[in-house]
C-alpha cells in the first residue's frame, strides 16, 4: 500500500541531475526552431558545397546561352535585312572581301593603312573596312590592286555613330591616338562607361549596326555638349587581315 504523501515528494537530486542535459537539449532545439532553422540551413549549405553545380554546369549554360544568342542574332539580321529592303534604305546587298594589310607606316600608325585589294576586286572609295571585333575605318582611295584605308583613329575621320542604350547619335572623331572621341549634339545624353557604340541603324554611308567600340569614359562638362572616349572593339594596333564590305548593286534598283 502506498504511504500517504508519496505523490507530493520532490524528485530526487539524482533524477534532476539526469534530466538537465535533456532540458539543455530541448532548449537548444527550441532555439533552432525559433531561429527558423538557420543553423541547419547553414550546416546543410556547408556540407553540400562540394555537390553544388560546378564549372561543367555553368559551361553548359554558357554554351546554351551562346547558341540562343546566335540564333536570335541570325533571325534579327534576316528580319533587319527584310525591313531595310522594305524601307529601301540600302539599295544593294553587301559582301565581305578579305584583304591583307600590306603597308602600315610608323609615322601614320593611327592614321591609315594600305591593303592588298583594289578596284579590280570591286573596292570603291567609302567602303567600310572591318577587323575582327568591329569597324576599323573606311576606304579613301583605291588603285587597281591596293586601297588606302583611313582608320577611325585618324584625325580626319568623322563617322556618325549610335549609342543604342540611350538612343542618341554622335560623331566619332579620330584623335590620332588609339582612342577616338565621341561628340554628342544634345546635352544630357545619359551615356555612361560600358555603353556600346555602333554605326547608326539608319546609316547609308556605312553599313548599319556595325560594332564600333565601347564608351570608356564620359566628360559631361565638355562644351558645348558631352564627350566620351571610346575604346574601339577592333584591335587597331594589331591588324594583319581586314574585311572590306563591298557594295553589290542589285539589278533593277
Amino acid at each position: 500500500m502506498q504511504s500517504p504523501g508519496r505523490g507530493l515528494r520532490l524528485p530526487s537530486l539524482r533524477r534532476v541531475r539526469a534530466a538537465w542535459p535533456w532540458v539543455l537539449l530541448l532548449a537548444a532545439v527550441l532555439g533552432v526552431r525559433l531561429s527558423k532553422g538557420a543553423f541547419l540551413s547553414d550546416a546543410y549549405a556547408l556540407l553540400s558545397r562540394p555537390f553544388w553545380p560546378g564549372s561543367a554546369q555553368s559551361e553548359w549554360l554558357r554554351a546554351a546561352q551562346q547558341l540562343d544568342q546566335q540564333t536570335r542574332l541570325e533571325q534579327l539580321e534576316a528580319d533587319n535585312r527584310r525591313l531595310r529592303e522594305l524601307l529601301e534604305l540600302q539599295a544593294g546587298s553587301v559582301e565581305l572581301l578579305s584583304a591583307p594589310v600590306i603597308s602600315r607606316q610608323a609615322q601614320g600608325w593611327w592614321q591609315q593603312l594600305v591593303i592588298g585589294r583594289g578596284s579590280l576586286q570591286g573596292l570603291a572609295s567609302g567602303d567600310a573596312v572591318l577587323a575582327p571585333g568591329g569597324l576599323l575605318g573606311r576606304v579613301v582611295s583605291v588603285t587597281p590592286s591596293t586601297a588606302t584605308v583611313t582608320l577611325l583613329t585618324d584625325t580626319s575621320s568623322r563617322v556618325g555613330v549610335w549609342v543604342g542604350r540611350v538612343r542618341h547619335h554622335g560623331m566619332l572623331v579620330g584623335q590620332g591616338s588609339d582612342r577616338p572621341l565621341l561628340r554628342f549634339i544634345q546635352q544630357d545624353v545619359g551615356v555612361r562607361p560600358g555603353d556600346l557604340v555602333t554605326t547608326s541603324p539608319a546609316s547609308t554611308l556605312l553599313p548599319p549596326n556595325l560594332t564600333v567600340g565601347v564608351v570608356q569614359s564620359v566628360n559631361d562638362k565638355a562644351v558645348p555638349a558631352p564627350e566620351a572616349v571610346v575604346q574601339l572593339s577592333a584591335p587597331v594596333e594589331a591588324i594583319d587581315w581586314v574585311q572590306v564590305q563591298v557594295q553589290v548593286q542589285v539589278a533593277g534598283r
Partner: peptide
C-alpha cells in the same frame, strides 16, 4: 518521446 519532440522542433524549423 523526447527525441520525437527534438525531431519535431527541428523539422518544424525548416518550414515557415
Amino acid at each position: 518521446a523526447l527525441l520525437g519532440a527534438v525531431l519535431g522542433l527541428l523539422l518544424d524549423s525548416l518550414h515557415p
